[in-house]
């Protein structure tokens, strides 16, 4: 599990885990509203920087502008999206009934009481949340479609795809 803080927002802590071979996605999907986590379909995440830049954007908006959604977690999901439609963001990035690779994210204020660890709810095998594993699980074509990146004749490397995605995340709605 990655446990980190974003240096500009020291009041918050971030925990992220990546699971493969998840068995109970449909169960998790129904519980999304009540569980204090964000569940993200790993097919839509190609790099750490993609997800973390969305977390940065979410904290930036919450701190200096205003929150658009009901929780920090849904805010992160919105910030992953290239458009500002909340329902759309959940639909695209949120966990699906048949998601096999799932990312769990917990974003909360430092002083908040501990929540149960991810593996209490997720029935799957945890692997390191890093670019190597994300690289195995992401769906290039799906990402291109979601972020509307024109697919030139040459295959885009993961680095350049990630870069384009991070740009879209930062510029959403601006």
């Amino acid at each position: 599990m990655l446990q980190t803080k974003l240096p500009q927002f020291p009041k918050y802590k971030v925990d992220i885990s990546l699971f493969r071979d998840v068995q109970n996605s449909n169960e998790l999907k129904t519980k999304v509203a009540e569980l204090p986590y964000a569940f993200i379909d790993a097919k839509t995440i190609c790099s750490r920087e993609q997800l973390l830049s969305a977390v940065y954007r979410a904290l930036d908006e919450v701190t200096y502008n205003k929150m658009r959604t009901k929780s920090l977690h849904s805010e992160c999901l919105l910030c992953l999206s290239p458009t500002s439609n909340i329902g759309d963001a959940f639909h695209k990035f949120g966990i699906k009934e048949d998601s096999r690779e799932v990312i769990c994210l917990q974003l909360s204020k430092v002083e908040q009481h501990e929540v149960p660890p991810f593996h209490v709810f997720v029935k799957g095998i945890e692997v390191a949340f890093d670019d190597e594993h994300l690289g195995q699980f992401y769906d290039k074509e799906l990402l291109r479609r979601i972020y509307k990146l024109d697919s030139s004749s040459q295959p885009q490397s993961r680095e350049s795809l990630s870069r384009a995605v991070v740009n879209a995340i930062h510029l959403r709605g601006l």
């Binding site: 500009q8 940065y56 954007r57 200096y64 870069r163 384009a164 991070v166 740009n167 879209a168 510029l171």
Partner: peptide, 19 residues
């Protein structure tokens, strides 16, 4: 910067965050 980074062969700094 975002648009320029999409141009094949053009080298500009990567945008990391926008505050």
């Amino acid at each position: 910067l975002s648009k320029l980074s999409q141009i094949e062969g053009l080298q500009v700094p990567k945008l990391i965050a926008c505050d």
